[in-house]
């Protein structure tokens, strides 16, 4: 017996990268915009998707992939709005990956916008590219106003940052401006939206961003 050293130059992330690239190519070939909706548990991700479907029903064809440890509940909430939807159970995994999305993506070649709701978690999904075009990160004031600062990586890589449930800010003594400033200083290029889905605050601004993303499709 003797010892040898074998040099390797292997990218451990290569499988996810390859499948994400295939997802992205499929989406671009069919003119679909995919949005990875990330954020904390209960921050309002599913409600945002539901309200967006209702608001744009006559304008845009929407599809949705709902990822969760058990995805059935979110799937049923979204599917009852009459759009094509697909639940993705992650089981023990704390994030979606490109492989899981790869299994169902072909069903969505005919939509304009594909929402992919990720598992509610501000850490685990961050490093798994799904092949999406945009990342939306949603948190709510009830998670505490230091939630942005504590999770720099997910906010740094976001295209849109939504601070939701701002009508509750006073009750939970959260400083919304601090959250916005933290987000800005981590990610000066992101679109930052102060929102309350129950009081209809910031929702028009979100729709405007989405319409703009649709117009710039393929450019």
């Amino acid at each position: 017996m003797h010892r040898i050293e074998v040099d390797a130059e292997y990218d451990v992330l290569s499988l996810n990268k390859r499948l994400a690239k295939e997802n992205r190519e499929f989406l671009s070939k069919h003119g679909v915009i995919a949005i990875n909706v990330m954020g904390a548990i209960g921050s309002g991700k599913t409600l945002l998707i539901e309200k967006t479907i209702e608001a744009l029903k006559d304008e845009v064809k929407i599809g949705a992939i709902l990822g969760d440890v058990i995805a059935k509940d979110d799937y049923e909430r979204v599917a009852r709005h009459g759009v094509k939807a697909e639940p993705l159970n992650t089981g023990k995994e704390c994030h979606l990956d490109a492989h899981l999305v790869h299994h169902v993506i072909e069903k969505f070649g005919d939509v304009d916008v594909l929402f992919i709701e990720n598992v509610g978690n501000l850490i685990c999904p961050v490093d798994f590219d799904l092949g999406e075009n945009y990342r939306v990160v949603m948190v709510s004031v009830t998670e505490g106003d230091d939630v942005v600062k504590k999770h720099p990586e997910i906010f740094r890589l976001a295209d849109v940052i939504i601070i939701n449930k701002i009508a509750l800010a006073e009750a939970v003594e959260a400083n919304v401006d601090k959250m916005v400033n933290d987000a800005k200083s981590l990610n000066p290029k992101a679109k930052i939206i102060k929102m309350d889905l129950k009081k209809n605050i910031g929702f028009e601004e979100w729709l405007e961003w989405l319409r703009c993303a649709l117009r710039s499709r393929g450019e």
Binding site: M1, R3, V6, E9, V12
Partner: peptide
């Protein structure tokens, strides 16, 4: 911000 996101296998020591 560039880099800082890699995960590479560089070398393996093994007995043969």
């Amino acid at each position: 911000i560039e880099g800082g996101k890699d995960f590479l296998l560089k070398k393996i020591e093994m007995e043969v």
